[in-house]
Computed example of a mutant assay.
Amino acid sequence: MEIKSFYKNQRELAEALSRVIDKYWCSEILENEMIDSIKRIVENNETKVFTNTSGEFTTVLRQQCGKKRLEVVSKILDRKD
């Protein structure tokens, strides 16, 4: 699966995160591939993912991705590998 590392806006970023998680939920990619993709996307686009002050997901991401997908992203980012 080919996923870009850098996105020009929050909407494209949200679509990419949603696509990766949905592919995992549909068993189209393995868990490790999903985890690596999400980590790489968030790491390279941190200013588009989190608000400056509180470290919460931006409004656009919350609206576009939804609660369940962002729970997955949070759990992946909180893991201590």
Rank of each mutant, 00 (worst) to 15 (best):
V42G: 04
L70C: 03
E46M: 07
S5E: 14
K48D: 09
R69F: 00
E43R: 14
T47C: 13
V49M: 08
I38Q: 08
K4E: 15
Y7S: 04
Q64L: 13
E71P: 01
F6T: 15
G55R: 08
K48G: 02
S5D: 15
E33V: 08
K80F: 09
A16T: 12
T51F: 00
S37D: 14
K75Y: 08
K80M: 12
I3S: 05
E31P: 05
E43N: 07
N32F: 09
R40E: 15
L30P: 11
S54H: 11
K4Y: 09
M1T: 07
S18Q: 04
C65N: 00
E31Y: 14
I3M: 12
Q63T: 06
R19D: 15
K67Y: 10
C26S: 14
Y24H: 14
E33Q: 08
D78P: 00
K75W: 04
L77H: 03
L70Y: 04
E15V: 09
R79K: 08
Y7E: 11
E15G: 01
V20L: 00
C26P: 00
K4D: 14
M34K: 07
Q63Y: 01
K80I: 15
N44D: 12
I76L: 02
C65Q: 01
D78W: 02
V42P: 06
E2V: 02
V72Q: 11
E12N: 04
V42E: 09
T47S: 15
L17K: 03
N52M: 13
R79H: 13
K75F: 09
G66Y: 07
E12S: 11
E71Q: 14
E33I: 05
R19A: 10
F6W: 05
E31R: 13
D22Q: 04
Y7D: 05
